[in-house]
């Protein structure tokens, strides 16, 4: 067992490049999934039935199909569905990355939406009623009154989704995104040092989980605990 070879420029650079792609992919997907997830949750509870149905159908379908199939769909299926101009634009850049990002963001958004929805439910009913009575519309009340309160109670659940997303980003290797898992397999197949390569990847993934968990705990430290639903 000798980990020294991993520090030679060739292999070290490959693994660092993979880690950077994993971080970029996870961070971008997290931002898109957060925005999309909030929109889905608000639509899921809207006083307008077709918005509720559409959102529910999206959430149920995405949550009950494998992420890998969705990634394959985006990667292989998008060329069949998107206009030629868009495709050329994407092919000039990084098509694998775009497909991986689309798949991860759409998948994670469905899970975020359910967390946001339960966060919204935990805000006292009277808040919505009071906001509406003050003359705010449904969307205005959500944006200015309900969501700011709900989002604070959801931090642990959202951190958990971020952890899942970071781990899930490894599946992008299946469609050729050169992220951490992909690069580690490259190093492994070039050197046949399976144990060392896998151990390095394992350590990096665990370190990522640890950093995210600790960062969340540090951010939460000293904040007043969000209180449970007020009695009606």
């Amino acid at each position: 067992m000798d980990f020294g070879f991993l520090l030679t420029a060739e292999y070290r650079d490959a693994i660092v490049a993979g880690l950077v792609v994993t971080l970029e992919l996870s961070a971008l997907a997290a931002i898109i999934a957060a925005v999309l997830g909030i929109i889905l949750a608000v639509a899921r509870m809207a006083p307008f039935a077709p918005a509720r149905w559409l959102s529910a159908a999206y959430i149920e379908f995405i949550r009950n199909t494998p992420l890998l199939v969705q990634l394959l769909f985006w990667y292989f299926g998008a060329p069949q569905l998107l206009p030629q101009v868009w495709l050329e634009w994407l092919y000039d850049r990084n098509f694998e990355f775009a497909a991986g990002l689309a798949g991860l963001a759409c998948y994670t958004a469905a899970f975020v939406a359910e967390d946001v929805r339960s966060g919204i439910r935990n805000v006292a009913r009277g808040q919505m009623e009071a906001a509406r009575a003050c003359g705010l519309g449904y969307l205005g009340a959500m944006r200015l009154v309900i969501l700011p309160q709900a989002l604070r109670t959801m931090v642990p659940a959202l951190v958990n989704q971020l952890l899942n997303l970071t781990k899930n980003s490894s599946l992008a290797m299946a469609i050729g995104v050169a992220e951490l898992m992909y690069q580690v397999r490259e190093v492994e197949s070039r050197t046949f040092r399976t144990f060392e390569a896998f151990a390095a990847a394992t350590a990096i993934y665990l370190a990522l989980s640890l950093v995210i968990t600790l960062f969340a705990a540090w951010r939460e430290r000293g904040r007043p605990q969000p209180h449970a639903r007020h009695p009606a």
Binding site: F61, T65, V69, G77, P79, Q80
Partner: peptide
């Protein structure tokens, strides 16, 4: 491919 992966997604669903 879009139809095939869509079909399989329906199977899983």
């Amino acid at each position: 491919p879009a139809e095939i992966y869509g079909l399989v997604a329906i199977f899983y669903f």
